[in-house]
Structure formats: structure tokens, C-alpha cells
């Protein structure tokens, strides 16, 4: 037996268990992924769809169409076209993300049928400071985003909002509030033209 051959067969003798386990576990995981993939996707979709009636007045949850549109920055993103029960366009929902105080914040932004106004927002995912910044997910804060201009001009103010384009900041969480505003503004500016062309 040559030196070369005994060496390679030695490798196999040493590592056969690792190789076999790798294949076995890999197969097992592929099976788990295949059987659970649809369920996990459905959970995510349900979470988005269950929010749509809150974001767009009169939208029918069963009549939502996911579109892939190219924004002003040349990138594609998902926009949900929502219809009311008569089949008319009720509004649009943009999915957007950006950096917050601690980590990425993911939001859904509802737009009116003409895409001129923000009809509401919902925070899908965030890891802001518990007890302060995480109030951006609270109904109280989200309600402050109703009927705001959809041209990227929303500003966060301390104290009560006086003008149409103002949103009251969360006490003790100015950075988180500003982050949400920045995400909403940039997403709206980016997508509004593409949405208006859709009609």
C-alpha cells in the first residue's frame, strides 16, 4: 500500500462519523425546513395582513395584492395594494425599515387611496429600550400618525403637535421617535411616485 493511499483512508477512518452526521443532520434539517416553511411564511404574512385594516380605512383583508415596485432609489420593495369591499382602491401599505436607537426598526406605512396622506403606521419589529423606546409600538404613539402628509415632511416635536405635519415625540425616547419619522419620510418619498403610477 502506498503512503498516499493509507493517508487518505486514514482520513476517512477518522472522520467518517462527522461526514455521516453532517449528511444525516443536513437531510433532517432540510425535511424540517420543507415541512415548516409554509407555516412560518404564513405567520409573517398573517401578521402584516392583520394590520392592514388598521392602517387603511375600509380595506378588506381578503382583497390585498402584494406588488413589487421600483422606488426612486432604483431598488425594489413590496407594496400592498388594498381594496375596499366594493373593489375600489382603499389605500396602500409600504413595508419599510431603518435603523433605530438600538437596532433595526421595521414599519408598515398606510397611505390613502390617492397616496397623498399617511393614514397610519404600525411597528412590525424593533429592539428599542424596554420601558422607554419600545413605546413606539404602543397604540397611543401609533395613533399620532393618522392623516399626515405623504411627502416626506413629517417632523417630530416635543409637546403637542400644532400643525398637520407634526407628530408628538415620546417622552424619554426622542431618538426612537425621530428614527420612526426618518424611516416613514424616506420610504414615502421613495415610493409615492411609483404608487401613483400604479393607478
Amino acid at each position: 500500500m502506498s503512503q498516499e493511499k493509507s493517508k487518505s483512508s486514514n482520513y476517512i477512518a477518522q472522520a467518517w462519523l462527522v461526514i455521516l452526521l453532517g449528511l444525516l443532520y443536513g437531510g433532517g434539517l432540510a425535511g424540517v425546513q420543507l415541512s415548516l416553511k409554509d407555516k412560518i411564511e404564513e405567520n409573517k404574512r398573517n401578521e402584516i395582513y392583520s394590520q392592514i385594516p388598521e392602517l387603511v380605512q375600509g380595506a378588506d383583508r381578503e382583497k390585498v395584492e402584494a406588488l413589487v415596485l421600483t422606488g426612486a432609489d432604483g431598488k425594489e420593495s413590496v407594496v400592498y395594494k388594498t381594496l375596499n369591499s366594493d373593489g375600489q382602491v382603499a389605500g396602500w401599505v409600504i413595508r419599510a425599515a431603518g435603523s433605530g436607537f438600538a437596532d433595526r426598526i421595521e414599519v408598515l406605512i398606510g397611505l390613502s387611496a390617492t397616496a397623498d396622506q399617511v393614514s397610519g403606521i404600525f411597528v412590525l419589529d424593533q429592539k428599542e429600550t424596554p420601558g422607554l423606546g419600545d413605546y413606539i409600538t404602543g397604540a397611543d404613539f401609533l395613533a399620532r400618525w393618522k392623516d399626515k402628509p405623504a411627502d416626506g415632511s413629517i417632523v417630530i416635536v416635543k409637546g403637542e403637535a400644532q400643525k398637520e405635519d407634526q407628530v408628538q415625540a415620546l417622552t424619554g425616547a426622542t431618538v426612537s421617535s425621530d428614527s420612526v419619522a426618518a424611516i416613514v419620510n424616506s420610504a414615502v418619498k421613495n415610493m409615492v411616485e411609483a404608487i401613483k403610477k400604479q393607478k
Partner: peptide
């Protein structure tokens, strides 16, 4: 990984 997928699904 299996535990993670199960939690995400159920």
C-alpha cells in the same frame, strides 16, 4: 435549528 423553526411556526 429544529427548535428555532418550531417556535417560528407554532
Amino acid at each position: 435549528t429544529i427548535a428555532d423553526k418550531f417556535l417560528a411556526a407554532y
